[in-house]
């Protein structure tokens, strides 16, 4: 009997087999490369990397991230001091110039220098990212600590509200919030902060719940401490490392959101140097073959976020060595 189900199952099995082989080939290549690296000189370094639970490229990744983050901070602080941006300086004679020594990143469709605008855009993005991440962390920590410390029906109620927020796609919710205000930096910050406290609330609540059953909390209760005092003095300090890590990991995410909102035309006003705005306005010229107005702002979004996430990964491994660092984007 030619059972269509059996046939489908057979085909699925075949596909799985093929994909397994496809996965195995690079794995074998990696194995060979690793063996080649195990020369006596590399052995020590390699062992150390293995012992710390990371791949050999880990130290390199961390160093690169650290250098990049330092360079970014220096750039956004120093460049505006050295080269004040004449924001509206339009030079139509020099529009859409390809990268050259005079304009390393080229110029945009109204002749503004892209390198300078990228740095200014990154400045705005970092400001939005850091402030929004901090605000989201404060909200998330407060909600999570409240739920965890009170327990019972208060906990269940608060966590259902968190679930409710989580059930709406957060970019959609963010767009909804931004749309209620006039375009500007603050609406974007509010929008990102109000949509990103959920995961922090969950992390903090779980941590508070685990701390709450420790005998030192019993000792504090027996010593006459009020609920408030137990929460503020004994529970919150214990979750601050986790909350801080969540805040740092959220900075790149917040930057991406700022760019996404600006790209959709809902974020910062169009004349402001924002990475999202720049990518958005470069779309038309991309079709004409001018790649630089899209590529460079795009890189300015991706590289700093990866660098920050890379550094935060080290912190996470310190706090929780069993969990390997990963991007939380």
């Amino acid at each position: 009997m030619a059972d269509p189900l059996a046939e489908t199952a057979q085909r699925t099995r075949e596909t799985a087999e093929t994909s397994r082989k496809a996965v195995e080939t690079p794995r074998k290549a990696a194995e060979t490369a690793r063996k080649a690296m195990e020369t006596p000189g590399a052995a020590h370094w390699h062992q150390r990397a293995a012992r710390r639970g990371g791949r050999g490229t880990r130290t390199l990744r961390v160093r690169t991230s650290a250098v990049l983050v330092a360079a970014i901070v220096l750039a956004v602080v120093a460049v505006p001091l050295l080269f004040p941006l004449d924001g509206q300086a339009v030079d139509l004679a020099a529009k859409l110039r390809a990268p050259s020594p005079a304009h390393p990143f080229g110029t945009d469709e109204v002749g503004r220098d892209l390198l300078l605008r990228c740095v200014y855009g990154l400045r705005v993005s970092l400001l939005v990212g850091v402030v929004a991440a901090l605000a989201a962390t404060v909200i998330g920590t407060a909600v999570g600590a409240l739920a965890g410390a009170l327990g019972g029906w208060a906990d269940r109620g608060v966590m259902r509200v968190v679930d409710l927020f989580s059930s709406v796609p957060h970019l959609l919710l963010g767009i909804f919030i931004v749309a209620m205000f006039r375009p500007g930096v603050w609406p974007v910050i509010i929008s990102v902060a109000l949509t990103h406290w959920l995961s922090t609330a969950r992390i903090v609540r779980a941590e508070v719940l685990s701390l709450r059953s420790r005998p030192y909390i019993d000792a504090a209760v027996s010593g006459g401490a009020s609920r408030w005092r137990v929460t503020v003095r004994h529970l919150l300090p214990g979750v601050l490392p986790q909350a801080g890590l969540a805040a740092v990991l959220m900075v790149p995410h917040a930057i991406w959101h700022e760019s996404a909102l600006s790209f959709l035309g809902l974020g910062l006003p169009a004349h402001e140097a924002s990475l999202g705005n720049m990518v958005n306005s470069a779309r038309s010229s991309l079709l004409a073959g001018d790649w630089w107005p899209t590529l460079f702002p795009g890189l300015f979004i991706i590289v700093p976020t990866l660098a920050i996430a890379g550094l935060a990964g080290v912190w996470r491994e310190r706090i929780n060595p069993r969990r390997r660092s990963e991007l939380m984007l």
Binding site: R214, D218, G223, G224
Partner: peptide
């Protein structure tokens, strides 16, 4: 009540100096 538990490591808030640990009930009240 004064309560003493089995495991001192778990029954001491790791962030407090011993002096603060001992006097914490006075502060709390």
């Amino acid at each position: 009540y004064g309560v003493v538990f089995q495991q001192p490591r778990l029954s001491a808030d790791p962030r407090l100096r011993l002096a603060d640990l001992i006097t914490e009930p006075l502060r709390a009240t």
